[in-house]
Amino acid sequence: MKKDYEKMEELYELYEQNVYYVTFSVLHNIQQAEDAVQETFMTLYSHLDDIRSLNSQELKRYILRIAKNKAIDSYRKNKRHGTFIEEYQKEAKGEADAIIENWEQSFMSEIQLDTLLKTLKESYKLVFKYKVFYDLNYQEISSLMGISEVNVRKQFERARKQVLTILGGKHELFEELRNNG
């Protein structure tokens, strides 16, 4: 128990600034970035046994990947929450219920599509999810993944084609994906 505390203290001292930089670069909000930093280290604490075997380079990548994912999750929640609030304020009660139902249906579609994505290369899957699920632009994805914008576009195009082939045009996302390229 004391070793766990000491390890977490060490990790925090070494990586807190890097984690904050990653989360802030996604969220552009100090409070939310700090929250994402806290969530990152809470997640790390629950995976301490897993990370003990990693070398320092692998550990840094692992920690920063968790931070990036926590920030993206927060960004996504913000975006959905903001959209929901805007729509709710614009619409009558009956129409707001329809918006909630559509949101729930899109969430189910995301889970189903996530299953489809298991067939894609890991980098294609990430690019595709950032673009389609998180609604990030190519520049944001490039920054998050540390690859060129051209590479992001190419990987998204390849992932999109593979997903469209798998779907075979039999899904409502087909048109959206076709137009999203």
Rank of each mutant, 00 (worst) to 15 (best):
Y134V: 08
I30T: 11
L167A: 03
H47D: 03
M1R: 11
L177Q: 10
L136H: 04
A67D: 05
S109I: 07
Q112A: 05
R76F: 01
A96K: 13
K129C: 00
K68I: 01
S148C: 02
E91K: 13
A92V: 03
V26E: 01
Q31D: 13
Q57N: 07
D114V: 05
M8T: 02
N137Y: 09
Q105F: 11
L136S: 06
S53W: 06
F107P: 00
V152S: 10
M8I: 08
L11R: 13
H28M: 05
L136G: 05
E91R: 10
L164Q: 07
E6S: 07
L116E: 10
L54F: 10
S53G: 02
S46A: 13
Y75G: 04
N102A: 14
S46M: 13
N137F: 12
H28G: 00
L120M: 09
E39T: 01
E140C: 07
A67C: 09
D50Y: 08
H28S: 06
Y12N: 03
S142L: 11
S56E: 06
D4V: 02
F156K: 04
K129M: 10
E149T: 11
I85T: 03
N18A: 11
F41T: 00
L177M: 11
Q17L: 14
R80H: 09
L164T: 04
L167M: 15
E34K: 15
K79R: 13
S46V: 09
Y138L: 08
S46K: 15
V26S: 10
